[in-house]
């Protein structure tokens, strides 16, 4: 039963959504809206699960004095502090919560994001080796597109930006579309497997 009921919910609701795709009727549209409200109602409970998990993982670490347990203390205090700040002073602009968001979370996020620039450089250095014919083609294309993006390319030859544009527009777009078609089909197949109950791993376990 523990398996059957969730499976039934998935199969029934899933089929209803398939029908919804083809039926524009008011009833179908209302069903969709009603369902959206449910999702909104469910997510707060899931947040609670997340917070419990976070506290448990870090709490255990602190209790057992696992290596680097001090980080866990910082995490938990940060969590409690942000939550309390939000509850006590609200989340409007000018409140401590927003201050934390603007001056702690945003710059830290931006820092992580900017690491990309460095990682791209080192990844390119490692990856682009003319090991085979295909790799050589990739290498040349990459150099042309990179040059085409900056003025140096146009200074070398007026053909570089034009070729760069062609590479992006033709071979690149073609490959991209092919992958997209494959992805679309893969998604459809997986969805179908879930609907038919063939794929049940999301319920926990293989079978």
């Amino acid at each position: 039963m523990k398996r059957q009921i969730p499976l039934m919910i998935v199969v029934i609701l899933g089929s209803m959504f398939v029908v919804h795709t083809f039926v524009p009727h008011k009833i179908s549209a209302d069903f969709f809206d009603w369902f959206q409200d449910w999702i909104k109602a469910i997510s707060p409970f899931a947040i609670l699960l997340g917070v419990i998990s976070l506290s448990m993982v870090n709490g255990t670490k602190i209790k057992r004095k696992a290596p680097n347990w001090q980080y866990s203390v910082v995490t938990l205090i940060g969590l409690a502090f942000t939550a309390i700040a939000g509850f006590v002073w609200g989340t409007q602009t000018g409140t401590p919560y927003m201050w934390l968001f603007k001056n702690v979370q945003m710059p830290m996020g931006a820092t992580m994001f900017s690491l990309l620039a460095f990682y791209i450089a080192s990844a390119a250095y490692k990856a682009f080796r003319a090991r085979s014919t295909e790799a050589t083609v990739l290498l040349i294309a990459a150099v042309i597109v990179m040059l085409g993006q900056v003025s140096l390319g146009a200074m070398i030859s007026k053909w570089i930006p034009i070729t760069s544009k062609w590479i992006l527009n033709v071979p690149n777009l073609a490959a991209k579309r092919a992958i997209m078609i494959g992805v679309g089909l893969g998604m459809t197949a997986t969805s179908l497997k879930i609907l038919l109950g063939i794929e049940r791993t999301y319920l926990g376990g293989g079978k």
């Binding site: 620039a117 791209i120 450089a121 390119a124 250095y125 490692k126 682009f128 080796r129 003319a130 090991r131 290498l139 990459a142 150099v143 990179m146 040059l147 993006q149 900056v150 003025s151 140096l152």
Partner: peptide, 19 residues
């Protein structure tokens, strides 16, 4: 951006020469 691109290209070329 130009300098960074050129640097990356230089790295790629260096790596390939070595290779």
């Amino acid at each position: 951006q130009s300098v960074a691109h050129v640097m990356i290209i230089v790295f790629i070329i260096l790596g390939n020469i070595g290779f």
